[in-house]
Design a protein around this nucleic acid. Structure first.
Length: 246
DNA sequence: AATGGGGTCAACCGCGTCTCA
DNA sequence: ATGAGACGCGGTTGACCCCAT
Protein backbone atom coordinates (compact mmCIF):
# COMPACT_ATOMS: atom_id res chain seq x y z
CA UNK A 1 0.00 0.00 0.00
CA UNK A 2 1.46 3.39 -0.99
CA UNK A 3 1.81 6.30 1.46
CA UNK A 4 -0.78 8.27 -0.41
CA UNK A 5 -3.34 5.51 -0.32
CA UNK A 6 -2.61 4.83 3.33
CA UNK A 7 -2.88 8.51 4.18
CA UNK A 8 -6.27 8.70 2.57
CA UNK A 9 -7.35 5.52 4.36
CA UNK A 10 -6.35 7.17 7.62
CA UNK A 11 -8.29 10.31 6.77
CA UNK A 12 -5.23 12.43 5.94
CA UNK A 13 -4.83 14.39 2.77
CA UNK A 14 -8.37 15.70 2.54
CA UNK A 15 -9.34 16.68 -0.99
CA UNK A 16 -11.02 20.06 -1.16
CA UNK A 17 -11.96 21.79 -4.43
CA UNK A 18 -9.66 19.38 -6.24
CA UNK A 19 -6.65 20.14 -4.01
CA UNK A 20 -5.20 17.76 -1.49
CA UNK A 21 -4.64 19.12 2.00
CA UNK A 22 -2.96 17.95 5.15
CA UNK A 23 0.32 16.14 5.72
CA UNK A 24 2.49 15.46 2.70
CA UNK A 25 3.28 11.91 1.66
CA UNK A 26 6.75 10.69 0.69
CA UNK A 27 5.54 10.29 -2.89
CA UNK A 28 4.33 13.90 -3.01
CA UNK A 29 7.66 15.07 -1.64
CA UNK A 30 9.47 13.09 -4.32
CA UNK A 31 7.34 14.62 -7.06
CA UNK A 32 7.92 18.12 -5.74
CA UNK A 33 11.70 17.60 -5.48
CA UNK A 34 11.73 16.29 -9.05
CA UNK A 35 9.77 19.31 -10.20
CA UNK A 36 12.19 21.77 -8.58
CA UNK A 37 15.17 19.90 -10.02
CA UNK A 38 13.72 20.24 -13.50
CA UNK A 39 12.12 23.68 -13.37
CA UNK A 40 13.70 25.45 -10.43
CA UNK A 41 11.89 27.33 -7.66
CA UNK A 42 8.94 29.51 -8.55
CA UNK A 43 5.87 29.17 -10.78
CA UNK A 44 4.34 27.13 -7.99
CA UNK A 45 0.90 27.16 -9.52
CA UNK A 46 2.15 25.09 -12.43
CA UNK A 47 3.43 22.32 -10.16
CA UNK A 48 0.09 20.57 -10.20
CA UNK A 49 0.06 20.48 -14.01
CA UNK A 50 3.73 19.70 -14.61
CA UNK A 51 4.39 17.35 -11.69
CA UNK A 52 0.99 15.74 -11.37
CA UNK A 53 0.63 16.88 -7.78
CA UNK A 54 -2.85 17.55 -6.47
CA UNK A 55 -1.55 20.39 -4.33
CA UNK A 56 -2.07 24.10 -4.87
CA UNK A 57 0.88 26.38 -5.49
CA UNK A 58 0.87 27.82 -2.03
CA UNK A 59 1.06 24.43 -0.41
CA UNK A 60 3.91 23.37 -2.72
CA UNK A 61 5.93 26.49 -2.05
CA UNK A 62 5.48 26.11 1.69
CA UNK A 63 6.50 22.47 1.63
CA UNK A 64 9.60 23.27 -0.38
CA UNK A 65 10.64 26.32 1.58
CA UNK A 66 10.00 24.90 5.05
CA UNK A 67 10.87 21.27 4.62
CA UNK A 68 12.38 20.05 1.37
CA UNK A 69 15.00 22.68 0.53
CA UNK A 70 18.39 20.92 0.60
CA UNK A 71 20.13 23.74 2.47
CA UNK A 72 17.86 23.50 5.47
CA UNK A 73 19.51 22.97 8.83
CA UNK A 74 17.94 20.28 10.99
CA UNK A 75 18.16 19.92 14.73
CA UNK A 76 17.84 22.22 17.68
CA UNK A 77 18.47 25.93 17.63
CA UNK A 78 21.93 26.52 19.11
CA UNK A 79 22.56 29.04 21.91
CA UNK A 80 24.37 31.21 19.39
CA UNK A 81 21.38 31.15 17.06
CA UNK A 82 19.12 31.89 20.01
CA UNK A 83 21.19 34.97 20.84
CA UNK A 84 20.82 36.18 17.29
CA UNK A 85 17.07 35.56 17.37
CA UNK A 86 16.68 37.48 20.62
CA UNK A 87 18.77 40.36 19.37
CA UNK A 88 17.04 40.59 16.02
CA UNK A 89 13.59 40.18 17.52
CA UNK A 90 14.32 43.12 19.82
CA UNK A 91 15.24 45.08 16.73
CA UNK A 92 12.64 43.89 14.23
CA UNK A 93 9.77 42.46 16.22
CA UNK A 94 7.87 39.60 14.58
CA UNK A 95 9.51 39.98 11.18
CA UNK A 96 10.40 36.32 11.02
CA UNK A 97 11.53 36.23 7.43
CA UNK A 98 13.90 39.15 8.07
CA UNK A 99 15.31 37.37 11.10
CA UNK A 100 15.57 34.11 9.16
CA UNK A 101 17.84 35.76 6.57
CA UNK A 102 20.47 36.12 9.27
CA UNK A 103 20.25 32.44 10.19
CA UNK A 104 21.31 30.31 7.22
CA UNK A 105 19.39 27.05 7.00
CA UNK A 106 16.60 28.22 9.28
CA UNK A 107 13.18 29.18 7.98
CA UNK A 108 10.87 31.89 9.20
CA UNK A 109 8.55 29.11 10.34
CA UNK A 110 11.33 27.53 12.41
CA UNK A 111 12.10 30.80 14.11
CA UNK A 112 8.47 31.69 14.63
CA UNK A 113 7.79 28.29 16.21
CA UNK A 114 10.93 28.52 18.33
CA UNK A 115 10.01 31.97 19.57
CA UNK A 116 6.48 30.96 20.39
CA UNK A 117 7.49 27.87 22.35
CA UNK A 118 10.51 29.31 24.15
CA UNK A 119 9.61 32.91 24.73
CA UNK A 120 5.83 32.86 25.06
CA UNK A 121 6.35 31.20 28.44
CA UNK A 122 8.48 34.11 29.59
CA UNK A 123 5.99 36.56 28.15
CA UNK A 124 3.17 34.84 30.02
CA UNK A 125 5.18 34.89 33.24
CA UNK A 126 5.75 38.60 32.83
CA UNK A 127 2.04 39.11 32.13
CA UNK A 128 1.26 37.31 35.38
CA UNK A 129 3.72 39.59 37.12
CA UNK A 130 1.96 42.49 35.46
CA UNK A 131 -1.33 41.44 37.07
CA UNK A 132 0.41 41.06 40.44
CA UNK A 133 2.04 44.45 40.07
CA UNK A 134 -1.28 46.07 39.20
CA UNK A 135 -2.84 44.56 42.33
CA UNK A 136 0.06 45.80 44.45
CA UNK A 137 -0.18 49.26 42.91
CA UNK A 138 -3.89 49.33 43.69
CA UNK A 139 -3.22 48.26 47.29
CA UNK A 140 -0.63 51.01 47.63
CA UNK A 141 -2.90 53.64 46.13
CA UNK A 142 -5.71 52.60 48.47
CA UNK A 143 -3.32 52.63 51.42
CA UNK A 144 -1.93 56.03 50.51
CA UNK A 145 -5.45 57.40 50.10
CA UNK A 146 -6.39 56.08 53.54
CA UNK A 147 -3.18 57.53 54.91
CA UNK A 148 -3.96 60.91 53.41
CA UNK A 149 -7.47 60.87 54.82
CA UNK A 150 -6.11 59.84 58.22
CA UNK A 151 -3.54 62.62 58.02
CA UNK A 152 -6.26 65.16 57.32
CA UNK A 153 -8.22 63.93 60.35
CA UNK A 154 -5.06 64.07 62.46
CA UNK A 155 -4.29 67.56 61.26
CA UNK A 156 -7.81 68.71 62.17
CA UNK A 157 -7.42 67.21 65.64
CA UNK A 158 -4.08 68.94 66.10
CA UNK A 159 -5.46 72.24 64.84
CA UNK A 160 -8.41 72.01 67.19
CA UNK A 161 -6.05 71.21 70.07
CA UNK A 162 -3.96 74.21 69.12
CA UNK A 163 -7.13 76.33 68.92
CA UNK A 164 -8.06 75.18 72.41
CA UNK A 165 -4.61 76.13 73.63
CA UNK A 166 -4.72 79.52 71.92
CA UNK A 167 -5.17 81.17 75.26
CA UNK A 168 -2.09 79.28 76.44
CA UNK A 169 -0.06 81.20 73.77
CA UNK A 170 2.89 79.08 72.46
CA UNK A 171 2.62 75.49 73.78
CA UNK A 172 5.45 74.22 75.84
CA UNK A 173 7.22 70.97 74.96
CA UNK A 174 5.60 69.04 77.83
CA UNK A 175 2.22 70.35 76.67
CA UNK A 176 2.89 69.19 73.09
CA UNK A 177 3.95 65.79 74.39
CA UNK A 178 0.78 65.53 76.37
CA UNK A 179 -1.34 66.52 73.34
CA UNK A 180 0.39 64.00 71.09
CA UNK A 181 0.11 61.30 73.70
CA UNK A 182 -3.61 61.87 73.84
CA UNK A 183 -3.79 61.60 70.05
CA UNK A 184 -1.48 58.53 69.78
CA UNK A 185 -1.75 56.69 73.06
CA UNK A 186 -0.13 53.48 71.72
CA UNK A 187 2.94 55.11 70.24
CA UNK A 188 6.07 55.78 72.22
CA UNK A 189 8.36 58.68 71.46
CA UNK A 190 11.21 56.26 70.68
CA UNK A 191 9.09 54.42 68.09
CA UNK A 192 8.56 57.64 66.21
CA UNK A 193 6.29 59.91 68.05
CA UNK A 194 4.83 61.96 65.24
CA UNK A 195 2.42 60.70 62.65
CA UNK A 196 3.90 59.85 59.31
CA UNK A 197 2.69 63.05 57.67
CA UNK A 198 5.39 64.88 59.60
CA UNK A 199 8.07 62.62 58.29
CA UNK A 200 6.93 63.00 54.68
CA UNK A 201 7.04 59.24 54.24
CA UNK A 202 4.16 56.84 54.56
CA UNK A 203 5.37 53.37 55.45
CA UNK A 204 3.79 50.73 53.20
CA UNK A 205 2.27 47.66 54.82
CA UNK A 206 2.44 44.11 53.49
CA UNK A 207 5.21 44.77 51.05
CA UNK A 208 7.61 41.87 51.24
CA UNK A 209 11.16 41.72 49.99
CA UNK A 210 9.81 39.46 47.24
CA UNK A 211 7.39 42.19 46.19
CA UNK A 212 10.21 44.66 45.95
CA UNK A 213 12.27 42.27 43.85
CA UNK A 214 9.33 41.53 41.57
CA UNK A 215 8.68 45.25 41.23
CA UNK A 216 12.25 45.69 40.12
CA UNK A 217 11.94 42.87 37.62
CA UNK A 218 8.63 44.19 36.44
CA UNK A 219 10.17 47.58 35.78
CA UNK A 220 12.81 45.88 33.68
CA UNK A 221 10.19 43.81 31.88
CA UNK A 222 8.17 46.91 31.26
CA UNK A 223 11.17 48.70 29.88
CA UNK A 224 12.08 45.79 27.65
CA UNK A 225 8.45 45.28 26.67
CA UNK A 226 8.07 48.90 25.68
CA UNK A 227 11.29 48.75 23.79
CA UNK A 228 10.33 45.69 21.79
CA UNK A 229 6.79 46.90 21.29
CA UNK A 230 8.14 50.16 20.00
CA UNK A 231 10.37 48.28 17.65
CA UNK A 232 7.55 46.07 16.51
CA UNK A 233 5.06 48.84 15.98
CA UNK A 234 7.40 51.45 14.58
CA UNK A 235 9.03 49.29 11.98
CA UNK A 236 8.59 51.87 9.30
CA UNK A 237 10.37 54.48 11.37
CA UNK A 238 13.24 52.12 12.04
CA UNK A 239 13.85 51.16 8.46
CA UNK A 240 16.22 54.00 7.64
CA UNK A 241 18.17 53.45 10.87
CA UNK A 242 18.77 49.70 10.97
CA UNK A 243 19.30 47.24 8.20
CA UNK A 244 18.85 43.46 8.53
CA UNK A 245 21.89 41.24 8.04
CA UNK A 246 21.41 40.03 4.52
C1' DA B 1 -2.00 1.31 32.20
C1' DA B 2 -4.68 5.41 31.40
C1' DT B 3 -4.95 10.11 30.83
C1' DG B 4 -4.37 14.98 30.81
C1' DG B 5 -1.33 18.78 29.79
C1' DG B 6 2.36 20.98 27.63
C1' DG B 7 5.80 21.16 23.85
C1' DT B 8 6.88 20.84 19.07
C1' DC B 9 6.32 21.32 14.35
C1' DA B 10 4.01 20.97 9.87
C1' DA B 11 0.50 22.97 7.45
C1' DC B 12 -3.29 26.18 6.46
C1' DC B 13 -5.40 30.81 6.11
C1' DG B 14 -5.91 35.58 5.21
C1' DC B 15 -3.95 39.55 3.72
C1' DG B 16 -0.52 42.62 1.74
C1' DT B 17 2.82 43.32 -1.94
C1' DC B 18 4.82 42.49 -6.32
C1' DT B 19 4.81 41.60 -11.24
C1' DC B 20 3.28 41.58 -15.65
C1' DA B 21 0.14 41.87 -19.42
C1' DA C 1 -2.84 53.27 -15.05
C1' DT C 2 -4.90 49.16 -13.68
C1' DG C 3 -6.45 44.64 -12.66
C1' DA C 4 -5.49 39.79 -12.07
C1' DG C 5 -2.55 36.30 -10.73
C1' DA C 6 1.63 34.96 -8.20
C1' DC C 7 4.19 35.27 -4.31
C1' DG C 8 5.59 36.20 0.51
C1' DC C 9 4.65 36.88 5.23
C1' DG C 10 2.76 36.53 9.88
C1' DG C 11 -0.78 34.44 12.64
C1' DT C 12 -3.12 30.40 13.86
C1' DT C 13 -4.46 25.61 14.07
C1' DG C 14 -4.17 20.83 14.76
C1' DA C 15 -1.83 16.42 15.11
C1' DC C 16 1.61 13.98 17.27
C1' DC C 17 4.82 13.05 21.03
C1' DC C 18 6.47 12.97 25.64
C1' DC C 19 6.14 13.25 30.43
C1' DA C 20 4.05 13.63 34.90
C1' DT C 21 0.37 12.08 37.71
Amino acid sequence: MSWGVMAEHLGWGVIEEGWRKGPWTAEEDRLLIEYVKLHGEGRWNSVSKLAGLKRNGKSCRLRWVNYLRPDLKRGQITPHEENIIVELHARWGNRWSTIARSLPGRTDNDIKNYWRTHFKKKEKASLDNCEKSKARLLRRQQFQQQQQQQNQVDMKKIMSLLDESDNRSVPTLPQMRQDMASLYPNTSEEQGFFPSMFTGYASIPEVSTEDIIWDGLWNLDDFHGNLTMANATNRVNLHPIATPFY
